[in-house]
Amino acid sequence: MVSIQSITTEQVWNWLEAVPDPEIPVISIVDLGIIRAVDVDKDLIKVTITPTYSGCPAMSVIAMDIETELFKQGVSNLELETKIAPAWTTDWLSEKGKDRLEEYGIAPPQKAGEPQRCPNCKSVKVEKVSQFGSTPCKAQWRCQDCLEPFDYFKCI
């Protein structure tokens, strides 16, 4: 247990770094860019979250994971706030997060609206299979060289 007085904002951010995205566990919720603010006010810790998609079913799991992690660290007075404006954008994904996505086999979002290359063989010859994928934040693409299908993190 840590005494609440000794908790700093930075510490909370570090703890949250350890909370993986439940659907894409290679990146943390901090890398995903959905943690918008951490405020420490005496004994109260307030974490502000901005959901990726309005109907993202992972949001309740994420809230639960944050609680579990922070309670484990000795936080007892926690408030989670959901904030929808400004709306989440893939610009908030960290560079580290984007690299991790590619290593994991998910093409990171590109401003041009389509994947730059196949995350597996790095070929630039890729084609869209479907605008939607296994989660609201992804689309399905296929590499025309190695023929592997892959997920592309939609740019919004």
Binding site: Y53, S54, G55, C56, S130, Q131, F132, G133, P136
Partner: peptide, 10 residues
């Protein structure tokens, strides 16, 4: 999958 995702957004 696309239809289910669209429904989810809505």
């Amino acid at each position: 999958i696309a239809l289910a995702n669209t429904a989810l957004d809505l």
